[in-house]
């Protein structure tokens, strides 16, 4: 495993250029170019704001802030899994013809989405500053949650991406799963509104703690519980190891299966 990590690290330049390719290449032909990375979340938030202040006013105060601090990290998670699952199959040509640690493809895919989320946070900050909620020093604690979420997302994606090579349905199953998953995570609602027995079930979902932590930091201006953070890292590490183990087990026949 250590050997493998080293090898992946050796290929960090490849990860860097694949991430760059995905981020830059995506909007290369458009007039606004990289600006779209900001425009997308901006309008996403704007629309939610309009809908939830004018059409469905919510009981949660400054609901749009509450919503955006959850929806942007969720978008990262859901895109990472949804698209990352196809990261090996989608690069079949490369996988079949060139040697490199296959994880690189999945890591690059997840990282590109991650970078998109970080850019989305800039938009969140701007909204926060101009909203009654305001911004506090708690944002300095954000990277701790970023890393935990990244680990969780990568762990899942490694698993799904390697399974997809053998079972193409996995890609679609993941997307259906994500559709349900978003409602099993307190993004649109507050967890305290959920009946107690259901709450316990929701807490089994690692994304619940992630989103709750973002809410704590940005919306409530509070630090997340120490236990929550420790739990997040334990879960993140376990998922990452599990994902990598599954990946390594399945990786041997990638070139033949594709």
């Amino acid at each position: 495993m250590v050997q493998r990590m080293k090898e992946i690290y050796e290929y960090r330049d490849m990860i860097y250029s694949l991430v760059r390719r995905e981020l830059r290449g995506r909007y290369q032909k458009s007039v606004l170019g990289m600006l779209w990375t900001f425009i997308n979340p901006f309008f996403q938030i704007l629309i939610y704001t309009l809908v939830f202040t004018l059409i469905f006013p919510s009981s949660i105060e400054n609901y749009y802030i509450y919503l955006m601090t959850g929806i942007i990290p969720w978008t990262f998670f859901s895109e990472a899994l949804g698209q990352g699952a196809g990261s090996i199959v989608g690069n079949a040509d490369m996988t079949k013809k060139i040697y490199f640690p296959r994880e690189v493809l999945t890591i690059s895919s997840v990282t590109a989405k991650f970078v998109n989320m970080l850019l989305g946070f800039i938009v969140i900050f701007i909204f926060l500053i101009f909203s009654p909620v305001g911004i506090s020093a708690h944002i300095l604690f954000l990277p701790v949650i970023f890393i935990a979420e990244y680990m969780i997302a990568l762990g899942f994606t490694l698993m799904f991406a390697s399974i997809t090579v053998y079972l193409r349905d996995m890609e679609y199953i993941v997307n259906v799963l994500l559709m349900a998953w978003i409602w099993g995570t307190p993004i649109m609602y507050d967890i305290s509104l959920v009946p107690a027995p259901l709450q316990k079930i929701l807490l089994l979902n690692p994304m619940t703690s992630v989103i709750v932590s973002y809410h704590d930091l940005l919306y409530y201006h509070a630090l997340p519980g120490v236990l929550t953070v420790i739990m997040l890292y334990v879960v993140g590490l376990v998922l990452l190891l599990l994902g990598e183990t599954v990946f390594v087990r399945l990786e041997g026949n990638f070139a033949e299966e594709l």
Binding site: E10, Y11, D13, M14, Y16, S17, L18, R20, R21, R24, G25, Q28, K29, D93, M94, K96, K97, I98, F100
Partner: peptide, 26 residues
């Protein structure tokens, strides 16, 4: 074996050199 792996059509030749080379582990 495979030439031009990872080339992105919308990026310049220069940028693609970097991408392609990185796939070879350079």
């Amino acid at each position: 074996i495979e030439l031009g792996a990872g080339f992105h059509p919308d990026m310049s030749g220069r940028e693609n050199i970097y991408i392609n080379a990185s796939i070879f582990g350079i």
